[in-house]
Design a protein around this nucleic acid. Structure first.
Lengths: 329, 329
DNA sequence: CTGAAAGCGCTTACAG
DNA sequence: CTGAAAGCGCTTACAG
């Protein structure tokens, strides 16, 4: 910038004015400056700009896995809102490792992102308190924050799970299995809670072998399903706790001679093309992401109100697999 | 930092040393500095650091759509390599709009990203020349750059398309339709080229109604398929040009009374669970992303060699739909 | 082991 | 309409 000013024979401030399109520069001066910029291949350095201005016009997104079919539309929605607000997006995957979430979030804060959208992997977010106090707008999405009070956007997981299980009960099932994600993950805990509530409110007992929480690896899901479907108190229907479990469940059930009812949490592409179509509780990842990002930019616009908690409903989509009656019926 | 130094009663440089874990500080001094950092809630500002150091330890990724099931694993792979190299990732979607690609890429350069991984939406990338000259490492992936010579990582699209069509020919088909993406998109053009080459090398004529290029919207794909399957020279097999076309094609063919052979470019989840399973030419988006990012960091490590062009093979995965014989056979 | 000075490339507040 | 000075928060190169 100094070189440009020298070459154009003007002051630094004048170059700054031209680069930023500010008024108060003669057309002739401006064209001289532009020529110098061109000749020198000048490119403004936004880092220096940031240092003076405070705002970086960038936000950070920390989630579990950028490649997950549930989170990638959520990311895209956050990106769109950022774009509409003139911001760029940093994105990082925690891979469900608490230390990695923290490392990412703090690295983004050190870059002075204006705000942070977080799908947490950890349970204690007090490490963010100094950042929030320093003005970093923060919104949690899909799962709540731990030990701090911030804006949060969630799906009604327990409600969705209740609907799923009630649907199976309405179709005549009494022995219903649940295969969920690892205990401690908020959504997993909420969904198993919804399962128990629905069974209880229908007056149905739950055999201890019917509920299985753990990693969503195909191996585990397959063996747990096989166990539930045979054994002393076999289930006649299965509620799968998320999209990855559902995909494996579909594979396993396809190999069995008798049809078994299935409802999955989370929708997925082609669910309607399988035979039978897969009945699901659909979340709306785009709306989750959009709502979270909009909340973030409201804060950045200076809206000061107590932290909000927004809960979006799940939606039951019946496609066939959830309407299969129990064998005896 | 100044405040911390004052409070600890040391020089600025000593604070810097403690913050950066550099040697040459007494344990006692260090603990005094740490206490001051704690008390003042000090957070290092990386923007200032960047201003001095040159490197920002961040790279940018510009692609078509972060939520696309093909690009989201590619993004994740780029992110992993960035992480392994201590870099953060900016990610942005061009939505196939050339101006948006350019706007994003230049905004990232203004933030002084160290490097750029680009899935281009435009055909002329000379706008990047000043940036590249200024030291921004740049790698193109999935589609080549236009009018500049840079590192590029591609799938062998024409080769994959030839394999797909040859496979259908080997199963007895002579009237084979192709539904591709919009003309002008590199991968679309390469795949239609492969289609024609395979037909030609088998000595088969191509009816002009058998090839259709355009948007991948379900409406267009459906109407074009219906047209190709009826009319004067109906096809007995279809080669679909990408994952979105394939998904619609599966839906359309499922509604038809007679089985029609189908091979799709790009693999997709659950392709094996459909009846029949869908035969595809599988690309490896993770490997594309990883290779591109590794090439980028090689450049950042100072490797100076002529731009490289890496081409990864596609892989035919036979699952049933591509092995359906023509009706007369 | 420690620190004062200069500077990275911009913008802000002010004066002309 | 234009510019010189100060400063954003760090690091570099040097001296003690």
């Amino acid at each position: 910038m100094k070189d440009v000013a020298a070459r154009a024979g003007v002051g630094l401030k004048t170059v700054s004015r031209v680069v930023n399109g500010e008024p108060g520069v003669t057309l002739e001066t401006e064209s001289r400056v532009r020529a110098a910029i061109e000749a020198l291949g000048f490119r403004r350095n936004d880092s220096a700009r940031v240092l003076r201005k405070g705002r970086t016009a960038s936000i950070g997104l920390v989630l579990e896995d950028l490649a997950d079919p549930f989170y990638s539309p959520l990311s895209r929605a956050v990106e769109e809102v950022a774009r509409a607000n003139g911001s760029l997006l940093f994105a990082g995957s925690s891979a469900e490792v608490p230390e990695r979430e923290q490392e990412l979030a703090l690295a983004l804060c050190a870059r002075r992102v204006d705000g942070l959208v977080i799908v947490p992997a950890s349970e204690d977010h007090r490490y963010l308190e100094p950042e929030i106090a320093a003005g970093v707008a923060t919104v949690f999405v899909d799962r709540p924050a731990g030990r701090i009070d911030v804006d949060t956007v969630l799906t009604d997981n327990a409600g969705g799970a209740r609907d799923a299980v009630a649907h199976l009960i309405a179709h005549g099932h009494r022995a219903i299995g649940f295969i969920g994600d690892t205990e401690g993950i908020y959504t997993a805990d909420e969904r198993v809670r919804g399962y128990h509530e629905a069974m209880a409110s229908a007056g149905l007992p739950v055999d201890e072998g019917w509920v299985s929480m753990g990693p969503t690896s195909p191996e585990r899901v397959r063996s747990e399903l096989d166990r539930m479907l045979s054994g002393p108190a076999p289930v006649t229907a299965v509620f799968s706790g998320n999209n990855r479990v559902t995909v494996t469940a579909v594979r396993v059930l396809a190999d069995r001679p008798d049809p078994v009812a299935l409802v999955g949490f989370d929708d997925f592409e082609l669910a309607d093309l399988l035979r039978p179509g897969v009945t699901v509780i659909a979340q709306d990842p785009v709306r989750l992401g959009r709502t979270a990002a909009e909340l973030l930019f409201r804060r950045l616009d200076g809206i000061a109100e107590p932290p909000r908690r927004v809960e979006l409903p799940g939606r039951l989509v019946a496609r066939g697999s959830g309407e299969i009656p129990p064998p005896s019926a």
